[in-house]
Simulated assay, not measured.
Amino acid sequence: MPFFDELFPEHISRDASGGPRFFTSKAYAAAGQRITNREAAYPLHEWTIAQPVRSREDFEELRAFFYVVGGDADAFRFQDPSDFEGDRGNTSLTLIEGNVYQLNRTYAFGSRVFVRPIFKPVPGVVVWRNRAGAWTQASAVVDVATGRAAISDHAGGDTYAWSGEFHVPVAFKDPAAVWRFLGGPEMFTEWSGIELEEVRL
């Protein structure tokens, strides 16, 4: 899927509702036991923007955005208003190969930790190294197109975290837009119920 490396208008997405959807299957045994299976390691996020745009300028911006991405053809960046920042307390990095690591956002509760790869960080992300209990800024080059960081001067026992903002790669869920025309002293157009879904690139 082609990727348009621009952010969906933030002032429009503030009223979004949604979150992660896990892919699971479940069945029930004869005695009533519930049996579940995770079909995928990671959920995909979905959002609905129910609040109509409030001005002609907002509508023109949204309409232009829909046209340039070809409806549901191309993916783009979206900032989840509830979850777009990482810090040393809720992030990690996973070794991919050599000196290349994947940025992650982590979610901890009790004895469990869920690790979510972050593929679209925002420029300005800082990678931190913990060596012998002391945090220092690491020398790293972060690819904002993939969420991978090339880290220099690794030593055995080093662990890493990062701080900064991140986006989610999404696409419009529907290839068609539904606009509503409002009468009155000045003709006005609105588009509510916009659905976005996370994509894996």
Rank of each mutant, 00 (worst) to 15 (best):
A176G: 05
A177W: 08
A75W: 02
D5Q: 06
V168S: 00
L44Q: 07
M1S: 05
D80G: 07
H154E: 09
P185R: 01
V122N: 00
D174V: 12
F84D: 04
W191R: 10
Q33D: 12
I118V: 10
D80V: 02
R34L: 10
V144S: 15
N37S: 12
A149E: 09
A155M: 09
A40T: 14
D83E: 10
V125L: 11
P185L: 01
H167L: 13
S192N: 03
F3W: 11
I194W: 00
S163T: 10
D153W: 04
W128M: 03
L103W: 02
P123E: 04
A140V: 07
H11N: 15
R38Y: 06
V69C: 05
P20A: 01
Y101F: 13
Q102W: 03
A75I: 03
A150H: 03
F181T: 06
E6Y: 03
W179T: 10
F84L: 11
S111M: 09
T94A: 13
R14T: 14
N99S: 11
T94V: 14
V178W: 05
V144H: 15
S152Y: 05
M187N: 09
R116H: 12
T24F: 13
G193E: 07
F188D: 04
P52Q: 02
L62V: 15
D153R: 04
L196R: 03
T146A: 14
